[in-house]
């Protein structure tokens, strides 16, 4: 089942009198349950593509369809509804809500979809348990380590069991051990609930886990490869 489809995607930004082309001629399809990444150096357009797929931005030209919805045709409210119901985000800098406890941060997406309290509480505690941070439920982000913060962010992204999780450099601020733990959990999630993960990364630690690698250079896809289940055995797509 195709979850995300881009057709002749072009994204330009005004740069003074000129236009900066961030993405050009992107034609990709992402199937449900994929664990894939957009790989490339800084400025290659990874985050821009991730933002457009996540309906945080719109294409300048071309078309992007996410869960049968054309991103370029969505109103702000419809885009927000799509994100609220079907997409989870994980950011490099965690982006936790500083005034909230870990529990409240994870609870936040469920509040937005107005889930009943009893069900919400169970889901939040399950997510925190699953990520091994149930004992930190009452801690505020300032009291958490980087690894713990990112686990809270992952819990927040997956608590509503979204069909699509978009992770922008999720391990960039983590040490090797925390990166490993986080990635193992994401792989487990992907396997157990079949959530589609799309990463934007240039971190080797992440790249080794990807089953599909899309290489971007200067806003264009230069290579799209599927890696065999056994790690480190890439093959051309």
């Amino acid at each position: 089942m195709i979850l995300v489809k881009t057709r002749n995607l072009l994204k330009c930004y005004p740069m003074g009198l000129r236009k900066l082309t961030a993405l050009k001629d992107i034609n990709l399809e992402f199937q449900r349950g994929e664990f894939c990444g957009l790989i490339g150096p800084s400025g290659s357009g990874k985050t821009t593509l991730l933002n457009i797929i996540g309906s945080l931005d719109v294409p300048s030209q071309g078309s992007v369809t996410v869960l049968d919805k054309k991103i370029e045709e969505l109103s702000h409210v419809e885009a927000a509804r799509l994100r609220r119901n079907h997409i989870g985000f994980i950011f490099q800098t965690y982006n936790l809500l500083l005034l909230y406890t870990a529990y409240e941060n994870v609870e936040f997406p469920l509040l937005l979809i107005e889930m009943p309290e009893a069900k919400r509480k169970k889901k939040v505690m399950d997510a925190l348990d699953w990520l091994g941070i149930a004992d930190k439920a009452d801690s505020r982000p300032a009291q958490l380590s980087g690894g713990e913060s990112q686990r809270v962010a992952v819990a927040r992204a997956i608590v509503k069991l979204p069909q699509l999780v978009l992770a922008d450099e999720p391990t960039a601020n983590l040490d090797a051990e925390n990166s490993f733990n986080i990635l193992e959990m994401m792989v487990k999630l992907n396997r157990e609930i079949n959530t589609t993960f799309i990463f934007a990364t240039h971190d080797e630690k992440v790249i080794r886990y990807l089953r599909r690698k899309i290489h971007l250079v200067d806003g264009q896809v230069v290579k799209d490869e599927i890696v065999n289940q056994e790690r480190g055995n890439p093959c051309r797509h």
Binding site: G54, R83, I87, N95, L97, F108, P109, L112
Partner: peptide, 11 residues
Amino acid sequence: GTLMALGMSRG
């Protein structure tokens, strides 16, 4: 930005 990413509309 985070609130919007999590699904809150501007309104």
